[in-house]
């Protein structure tokens, strides 16, 4: 298993990063930190999916003069471009909500917010 994990080290690193992000989302009280945790998770998944497309010695999949096989897999890169846009959109909305919460409550610490309810 360790050997297989060594071959797939990129994937393993993504998994660890994902869990670190999840830890921040659950354990941190500051809303911004929670959200940074979410961004770490997003990055982890993007790294995982992009790593799926890597081919040893692969070149960027751009044809034309001077292009030589093997090329890396274009699909994961295309998917992650979409994923990044989705992540940006979520970030924009979350930050707006945090701005509004801060304006109305004067704090963005989850435990203090809970007391105010």
């Amino acid at each position: 298993m360790i050997e297989a994990l060594w071959v797939n080290l990129d994937y393993a690193a993504s998994v660890v990063l994902f869990l670190i992000g999840l830890y921040a989302v659950i354990a941190k009280d500051n809303l911004i930190k929670k959200f940074m945790g979410l961004n770490i998770m997003e990055t982890a998944i993007f790294a995982f999916i992009v790593a799926l497309g890597v081919v040893d010695g692969g070149d960027a999949p751009i044809m034309g003069e001077g292009a030589r096989a093997p090329f890396t897999n274009p699909i994961p890169q295309a998917l992650i471009l979409t994923g990044i846009v989705v992540a940006v959109s979520t970030t924009a909305l979350a930050l707006s909500l945090i701005i509004r919460i801060y304006r109305q409550c004067g704090t963005i610490e989850a435990d203090e917010l809970r007391e105010m309810e």
């Binding site: 298993m1 297989a4 994990l5 071959v7 797939n8 080290l9 990129d10 994937y11 393993a12 993504s14 998994v15 994902f18 869990l19 790593a51 799926l52 497309g53 890597v54 081919v55 040893d56 093997p70 897999n73 274009p74 699909i75 994961p76």
Partner: peptide
């Protein structure tokens, strides 16, 4: 999670399903 990713097809190999099918 780590067990599952260790069973994925080897990273970077050109014979993976990801590389031989649609792409």
């Amino acid at each position: 999670l780590l067990l599952a990713v260790s069973e994925l097809p080897p990273h970077g190999s050109a014979s993976n399903a990801t590389y031989t099918h649609v792409s």
